[in-house]
Amino acid sequence: MALKATIYKAELNIANMDTHQYGDYQLTMALHPSETIERLMVRILAFARYADDALEFTKDLFETDEPALWQKDLTGQLEKWIEVGCPDEDKVKKASARCSQVAVIAYGAAVAEWYKRSSKLKTLKNVEVWQLSEATTTAIQALCERTMQLQLNVMDGEWTLIGEHGQAEIEWVKLQ
């Protein structure tokens, strides 16, 4: 019998004073049996970076042709494609031809080597690559619960994610 996904819910309140974006989002995510809590929490941060009511979590690990998140317009055309981790550069290149905005939220010890080898990515104009520090991904895991209430504060470029049992400073590095 195959293992089933575990459902996580998060109430995410964003107060971004830098861009004057404020919103409350009810997020429901499936944790794939092969997925880690670290990756689940990175997906929440990816949502927060590009927060929009039309942004959706996809089947992702269940469906390999899909990113972690995407946003479609009212006609069903893809607008945003957001990958999490160190994806195959051909998949990202294909997405960049289909969408106006593509983003990769990379994390983990292998990011530097992955980015160094990803020469195709560097030629794509509509692709952003962000890296989360290992200290960030370690800290955000401590905030994870099956049902979470999270507050994200952004001011002067500093991100702080606050949960019921602590907080984490979010360190972003823009690679591209």
Rank of each mutant, 00 (worst) to 15 (best):
I37F: 12
I37R: 10
I37Q: 14
E38S: 05
E38V: 08
E38D: 02
R39G: 05
L40D: 14
L40S: 04
V42Q: 08
V42S: 02
V42R: 08
R43S: 06
I44Y: 12
I44C: 01
I44S: 10
I44H: 05
L45K: 07
A48H: 00
A48M: 01
R49E: 04
R49Y: 11
A51N: 01
A51H: 11
A51G: 12
A51V: 13
D52A: 12
D52W: 10
D53A: 14
A54S: 08
L55M: 12
K59N: 13
D60N: 13
L61H: 14
L61A: 13
T64W: 13
E66S: 14
P67F: 03
L69M: 08
W70K: 05
W70E: 01
Q71H: 03
K72H: 01
D73C: 02
T75K: 08
T75C: 04
G76E: 06
Q77N: 03
Q77H: 07
L78V: 13
E79Y: 13
E79R: 10
K80T: 07
K80N: 04
D88S: 11
E89V: 05
E89Q: 15
E89S: 13
D90H: 06
D90E: 10
K91D: 02
V92C: 11
V92M: 08
V92S: 01
K93L: 00
R98G: 02
S100A: 09
Q101H: 08
V102L: 08
A103F: 01
V104M: 04
V104W: 08
A106S: 05
Y107G: 05
G108E: 00
A109L: 15
W114E: 05
W114L: 01
W114C: 02
W114V: 00
Y115L: 03
Y115K: 07
K116Q: 09
R117C: 00
S119A: 11
L124V: 01
V129H: 04
W130R: 12
Q131P: 06
L132T: 08
A135P: 10
T137M: 04
A139Q: 06
Q141L: 02
Q141T: 15
A142D: 03
L143W: 11
C144Y: 04
C144A: 04
E145Y: 00
R146F: 05
R146Q: 06
M148L: 10
Q149R: 04
V154E: 05
M155E: 15
D156M: 11
D156S: 07
G157Q: 14
G157I: 02
G157C: 09
W159D: 13
W159I: 01
L161V: 06
I162G: 14
G163L: 13
E164T: 14
E164R: 14
G166A: 05
Q167E: 09
A168Y: 11
I170C: 11
W172Q: 01
V173C: 09
L175A: 10
